[in-house]
């Protein structure tokens, strides 16, 4: 029993640091770069993705013995897409400002590789409780990584921290926390000006690169390998490619292609 508890704890913790989906597994880069312009957006995105991840992990794990392996990818996609749509409708109804802030990136959680990747790599093979815990850990890891990015970008790029916090706090009623709406860290009129480019597109790539370098350094000091994006190996679809191509893995195909040329 104690052993089981310990392993569940490990499942949970691994998603946050050792196997952080964004900084270690390099998954879900698109939303990471796109919504990390403000901490509030990052938290909103992280929480939405986490809810979808936990729910879809639970359902997929429940159905893992029923779903034939031939159609498992379409089945996973349907399940994930339903949860995304449900989350989207709930956000629209109760946190409307967040919906307009996240825009198209909210429905695009469907194609977030973290979710399909976890379904394929974990939930399809493990028990319901373990899958739920895995989803929760990965979701928190995603949120934490997003918040790290967003904190750097918002403070340095816009000179604010937690700006528009009411967008999220509206969930708990109007004017929660006395209408708290974020701090101004750098006043625009002072000698110091925010580095605007950091919240624009190039700043996203740049911050992510630096953060990744820090994560690598940290991993190195612990004797772990660097995070690497190995073409399609890192992409969870690689496994599906293999399935589709009847046993040929994605990288093999590329090698063949390269050999031909």
């Amino acid at each position: 029993m104690a052993d089981k508890k310990k392993s569940l704890g490990r499942e949970f913790a691994k998603g946050i640091i050792v196997e952080n989906p964004v900084l270690r597994l390099v998954l879900g880069t698109c939303p990471t770069l796109a919504v990390s312009t403000s901490v509030v957006n990052a938290i909103g995105m992280g929480l939405s993705a986490m809810i979808v991840l936990v729910c879809s992990n639970i359902v997929i794990s429940c159905l893992r013995k029923i779903i034939p392996s031939k159609v498992r990818i379409p089945a996973y996609i349907v399940i994930i897409a339903s949860f995304v749509t449900i989350v989207q409708m709930i956000v629209k109804a109760f946190v409307p400002a967040l919906d307009s802030a996240l825009g198209v990136y909210l429905p695009l959680i469907v194609v977030n590789c973290i979710i399909l990747g976890r379904a394929e790599a974990f939930a399809g093979k493990n028990s319901v409780i373990a899958s739920a815990v895995d989803g929760l850990g990965m979701g928190i890891g995603f949120t934490v990584a997003l918040c790290c990015m967003a904190t750097v970008r918002e403070i340095l790029g816009a000179g604010t921290f937690l700006a528009d916090a009411q967008n999220l706090l509206v969930l708990f009623g109007e004017n929660t926390l006395g209408g708290f709406n974020g701090f101004t860290v750098i006043k625009d009129s002072s000698m110091l000006k925010p580095i605007t480019i950091l919240i624009m597109a190039p700043g996203g790539f740049f911050t992510f690169g630096i953060l990744m370098a820090c994560a690598n350094k940290l991993a190195e000091s612990k004797g772990k390998p660097k995070a690497e994006l190995k073409g399609c190996e890192a992409c969870p679809m690689a496994k599906n490619c293999a399935l589709i191509a009847k046993g040929e893995s994605c990288s093999e195909k590329e090698d063949k292609e390269a050999a031909k040329v």
Binding site: L63, I67, A75, A81, S82, I86, M89, K92, A93
Partner: peptide, 30 residues
């Protein structure tokens, strides 16, 4: 596989319709 996939789709569509019914008035109100 066809039957299982079909059932999943039907259940998913049903759940979505249900959520939509609950949230649509709230969205309109907002």
């Amino acid at each position: 596989p066809t039957v299982v996939l079909f059932v999943i789709c039907v259940v998913a569509a049903f759940l979505l319709a249900l959520t939509n019914k609950v949230t649509a008035p709230a969205i309109a109100e907002v």
